[in-house]
């Protein structure tokens, strides 16, 4: 069976692409899948440090595409899961160091051995973005519930369509529950309508993400936190399971809350 290459993209920077790739990588590995995460944010390598693997890098993606080493030599095995790997970005190269054709060839090779290839895309819509989406089977767009991020996500939806990557799915990250309650945060339902896109997951704002990033231990490993639950749910949805969108509020009244969050009740 051939693996699936999913590119995680956003338009606006800093909305949570790298965090998402790290957590979904671990989530899919926990379910027993063979997973490789490709850091395509060349020049701004981040996924290694979020994963806590920064001290193990020997070769990078550009060394592979330039033929300086074999793919196997550049892959770093995760310290927690032996079915999870990272292909690090090159730090001292520019965004165009990997061409779309090289990316496609790389993915063809990786698909033979892995069930999932998660590609961490750079922010923006220029060359780096085009190189990172080349050869992907499906795109996941990350946004925060803010006008600027949603606007940029709309641009990405258009560009993906033009690049033969239709029907991306959306993750809304950093949803602040108290602001939703006050009516000061865009409804998820409105965002989906405006972008005409299908929802993949809702991830709450959660300080545990920052703590876990400090430690190099993605939050999904900490099963008590809300963000962890959110990423676990997304992982299961990727596997084809129907998982209801999570309640962001413990205890009673959560149905009403979810409705409010989705914008179904006003």
């Amino acid at each position: 069976m051939e693996g699936r290459a999913l590119v995680i993209t956003s338009g606006k920077g800093g909305v949570g692409k790298t965090t998402t790739v790290a957590n979904l990588g671990i989530g899919l590995a926990m379910l027993g899948r063979q997973v490789v995460m490709v850091d395509a944010d060349i020049g701004l390598r981040n996924l290694d440090i979020v994963m806590g693997l920064e001290n193990r890098i020997v070769y990078d993606i550009v060394n592979v595409t330039e033929g300086k080493c074999k793919i196997r030599q550049a892959l770093i095995r995760d310290k927690r899961f032996d079915n999870l790997f990272l292909l690090p970005a090159a730090q001292s190269r520019d965004k165009d160091a990997v061409t779309p054709d090289q990316m496609k060839a790389l993915l063809t090779e990786l698909k033979k051995e892995f069930d999932y290839i998660l590609i961490d895309c750079p922010a923006g819509i220029e060359g780096g973005f085009k190189n990172a989406i080349a050869g992907a089977d499906k795109a996941i767009i990350v946004t925060t519930p803010e006008v600027s991020a949603v606007r940029d996500a709309d641009r990405i939806v258009g560009l993906l369509e033009a690049s033969d990557l239709p029907d991306p799915r959306l993750i809304v990250n950093r949803v602040k529950i108290d602001m939703v309650r006050r009516g000061d945060m865009l409804d998820i339902r409105d965002i989906l309508d405006i972008l005409s896109i299908e929802l993949l997951g809702i991830v709450p704002e959660d300080e545990n993400i920052i703590v876990s990033t400090n430690r190099g231990e993605p939050v999904i490993l900490d099963d008590g936190s809300r963000a962890s639950q959110a990423f676990r749910n997304i992982t299961r949805r990727l596997e084809g399971e129907e998982v209801p969108f999570m309640s962001l509020e413990p205890g009673n009244g959560f149905i009403a809350f979810i409705k409010r969050l989705m914008g179904l009740a006003r």
Partner: peptide
Amino acid sequence: EMRSKDLARERLRLVLIHDRADVS
């Protein structure tokens, strides 16, 4: 008027009409 989410939705809707028209 204090529900800034409604304002956000309307402003987004309007700006995207222009963005999409500009882009194509």
